[in-house]
C-alpha cells in the first residue's frame, strides 16, 4: 500500500510545451523521497500537481492517487506568510480547520505546542508576532508548524531551505528530519541542491527537463549513478559542497543542540 501514487503524470502548457513528461512516483507511508533537478526540471510542478494548485493554463493528464492527508511547506517564507495575520493565528486557524468543533482556546494551546515542536522558543510570546517581526528561519518554522497543524501523513516540501542562509538551512533540515522520524510522516522534499536532498531522503528521484532520469535508494544512487546527469550533479556538488558542508554542519549541530534534534 502506498500513501501516494502517481502514474504517467504529464503537464502541458497552453502553448503546447510539455513541462512534465510521463512521471511515475510512489511513496510508502513513512517514507522520505527526495526529488532533485535543475530549475525548470518540473520538480516543483509535480509537487503542485499533487495538491491541485497548478498555475493557470497548465493541463494535467495521468493519474494521481493520494489517500493520505497532505500539507506543504513553501520555498519563500517571506511571501508564504500573510503579512496581515499573526503567526499564532495562522497556525491556530489551520489547526481548527482540521479539528472541527474544537474551541479557539484549544486551537491556541495546540498552536503553542506546535511552535514548541518546531523549535520556536518563547512560543507563547511568538504566537502574537507579525511575520515581519520574525527572521527568515523563524518564519519557515512557523510555516512548518502551520503545515503540521493539518496533521499530514505526507509532508510536501518545495525547496524550503533555498531562501535561508546555510546555517539556518542546516537547522531546518535537522528539524524536518526529526519531525518526520517522530511523527512517522512520509515526506517529499524537492530541491535543486543534491546535498540538501541527500541529507533528508531515503529514496532519490532525479528529474531533468520534465522527465525522471533516475530513481532508487539514495545510498545506491549516490554510490553508483546510472545516469550521466546524476553523475554530473554529484560531481558538481562534491566539489562545491563537501568541504563547506562538513564545516557548516559541525557548527549547526552545535547551535541546534537546544532543539533536541536527532543527528545524522
Amino acid at each position: 500500500m502506498s500513501a501516494l501514487k502517481i502514474k504517467g503524470l504529464s503537464l502541458v502548457r497552453a502553448d503546447g510545451v510539455t513541462l512534465v513528461d510521463n512521471v511515475d512516483l510512489a511513496l510508502a507511508p513513512g517514507e522520505t523521497l527526495g526529488i532533485v533537478g535543475e530549475s525548470g526540471s518540473g520538480k516543483s510542478l509535480t509537487l503542485r500537481a499533487i495538491l491541485g494548485i497548478l498555475p493557470a493554463g497548465i493541463t494535467a493528464t495521468g493519474e494521481i492517487a493520494c489517500t493520505a492527508r497532505t500539507a506543504m511547506v513553501f520555498q519563500e517564507p517571506a511571501t508564504a506568510l500573510n503579512p496581515t495575520m499573526r503567526a499564532g493565528d495562522l497556525v491556530a486557524r489551520v489547526w481548527r480547520r482540521h479539528h472541527p468543533g474544537r474551541s479557539k482556546a484549544d486551537a491556541l494551546t495546540a498552536a503553542t505546542e506546535l511552535f514548541e515542536q518546531v523549535g520556536i522558543d518563547r512560543a507563547a510570546d511568538r504566537l502574537r508576532a507579525w511575520p515581519h517581526e520574525l527572521s527568515g528561519g523563524m518564519r519557515q518554522r512557523v510555516m512548518i508548524a502551520a503545515a503540521l497543524a493539518a496533521e499530514p501523513e505526507v509532508l510536501l516540501c518545495d525547496e524550503p531551505t533555498t531562501a535561508l542562509d546555510v546555517r539556518v538551512q542546516a537547522q531546518i533540515l535537522d528539524l524536518l528530519r526529526d519531525l518526520v522520524a517522530r511523527r512517522s510522516m512520509a515526506m517529499i522534499f524537492v530541491s535543486h541542491d543534491l546535498a540538501v536532498v541527500a541529507s533528508v531522503s531515503e529514496r532519490l528521484l532525479v528529474m531533468r527537463r520534465g522527465e525522471v532520469v533516475e530513481t532508487g535508494v539514495l545510498t545506491e544512487v549516490l554510490a553508483a549513478p546510472a545516469h550521466e546527469y546524476t553523475a554530473e550533479l554529484l560531481a558538481a556538488n562534491l566539489g562545491r559542497r563537501l568541504k563547506s558542508e562538513s564545516r557548516e554542519s559541525r557548527e549547526s549541530r552545535e547551535s541546534s543542540e537546544s532543539l533536541g534534534s536527532v543527528t545524522r
Binding site: 494548485i53 513553501f74 508564504a80 500573510n82 486557524r93
Partner: peptide
Amino acid sequence: TEYVTAAITAGFGAPRVIVR
C-alpha cells in the same frame, strides 16, 4: 502570492481565503 496558495492548500474555502 504563496500565502494565498498556502491557505488554499490548508483547505480553506474561497470566502475564508478572500476575507482573511
